[in-house]
């Protein structure tokens, strides 16, 4: 029996935090690729500490819904899941390449496949592009557009900046958008000065965050100048200093994220049948004709 466990941060204050986790779990459930799909949280229930005891299967894939490798994926989750003998060297990662480690979870005395976070998977690049398509409602968006991928800089976590650069570079290589830039909230190049970094009249701004919350709904919109105060709201697109900014909100809310969760499990050996194709198909942006 094959089980998927999606682990995410959650929140004591903001119900939107767990919403993408539930949505992606539902998308994956509908594919039937797993006998069960469970969700566990750091700040909600079931907690990381107790989620595994709710799991029935014997082939268990744990996928962290986090944007980068770091404190949560390397320390908190393995500790709270009680993965025996965990050492970050199990992943042998350069900060982007964690794939999976198979370890016994002492809580249930069964092996689990502990996967790398969704945010650093190569399939995440497609989700960022898909997010740009959804926010512009144009499945061919690219020409005449710039794309900004934004996240925390190195101050909070060195790997967070790495993940942002990685995806920005990969998108740039595709020559789809006129310009692609990685911007940061707490270091240069800063998202505050977005229009200065782009020549294009239209720029899609995609924050590399899992869920909408303080950073994506208050911090970034105010810093970028989409609004004076987040309570006023803003339009999409909103013109700032002559640049039309298409603000996408957290990339993690994009339905195609379910695909990355599946990719992580597949890389760790899960048997998915046609689920990957199914998810890519069902989460597509309509062509509008």
């Amino acid at each position: 029996m094959q089980s998927l466990v999606i682990v995410a941060h959650g929140s004591h204050l903001n119900p939107e935090s767990s919403a993408p986790t539930y949505d992606h779990a539902d998308t994956i459930r509908a594919t039937g690729a797993f006998d069960e799909v469970r969700t566990g949280f750091w700040k909600e229930e079931p907690h990381f500490r107790e989620v595994l005891r709710t799991v029935e299967g014997d082939e268990i894939y744990v996928v962290p819904l986090f944007v980068s490798e770091g404190y949560f994926t390397e320390q908190v989750i393995p500790r709270e899941l009680r993965l025996a003998g965990w050492d970050v060297s199990e992943w042998d990662s350069d900060g982007l390449s964690a794939d999976q480690a198979t370890l016994v979870a002492e809580d249930i005395d069964r092996e689990v496949h502990y996967c790398g976070p969704v945010g650093t998977h190569r399939a995440m690049t497609d989700v960022i592009v898909r997010r740009a398509e959804s926010v512009t409602d144009d499945p061919d968006v690219g020409e005449g557009f710039g794309l900004a991928v934004v996240g925390h800089g190195t101050e909070r976590n060195e790997n967070s900046a790495k993940a942002i650069e990685y995806h920005a570079d990969r998108i740039a290589e595709r020559d789809r958008f006129d310009e692609v830039k990685a911007l940061y909230m707490d270091e240069d190049p800063e998202v505050d000065d977005l229009p200065e970094h782009f020549e294009s009249d239209d720029v899609v701004l995609v924050p590399l965050f899992i869920a909408d919350g303080y950073h994506t709904q208050e911090d970034i919109p105010e810093d970028v100048g989409l609004c004076e105060d987040h309570t006023e709201g803003y339009d999409v697109p909103e013109t700032v200093d002559g640049t039309r900014i298409w603000y996408a909100g957290a990339v993690g809310t994009e339905p195609l994220m379910a695909d990355v969760v599946l990719e992580r499990a597949a890389d760790a050996g899960a048997d998915l049948g046609t689920a990957l194709d199914d998810v890519r198909e069902t989460t597509r942006v309509a062509t509008g004709d």
Partner: peptide, 10 residues
Amino acid sequence: ETIYPATVAN
């Protein structure tokens, strides 16, 4: 288990 997560397990 959805309303009271992990309560049955515990």
